[in-house]
Amino acid sequence: MDISVADVEHVARLARLELSEAEKSLFAGQMGAILGYVEKLKGLNTEGILPTSHAVPMENAFREDVACPSIGVEKALANAPDRADSFYRVPKVIE
C-alpha cells in the first residue's frame, strides 16, 4: 500500500512528532509495508461477521456509584514537571 510523505506529515502532526525529511520517507515506506501486510485480511470472507471491537468475549463490567478517597494533591502532582499552588502549570493556553 502506498503511503505518501504527506500522509506521514499528517499523522506526525496529529501525534505532535517532529520528523526529519529522511525519517519521513523512511516511515512512509515502513508504514506502507505494515498496511500492505494488514491488507491481506481483505482476502478473507467475512460475510455475516460483525466488525470486532474487542478481542475478549466480555461485556458489562461495572462499578457502583460510590465515591472513594482520592490520592491527594501531593501525590497527584508528584510527577508534574511544573506546578503553581495546587495546579499543574503548563505553557500559556490562549483561547
Binding site: 497527584a76 503553581a84 499552588d85 495546579f87 499543574y88 502549570r89 503548563v90 505553557p91 493556553v93
Partner: peptide, 12 residues
C-alpha cells in the same frame, strides 16, 4: 492564581 502570571493552571 499566584504563580500563574506565566503559563496556565490545570485542575483535573
Amino acid at each position: 492564581v499566584s504563580g500563574l502570571e506565566e503559563g496556565s493552571g490545570v485542575d483535573l
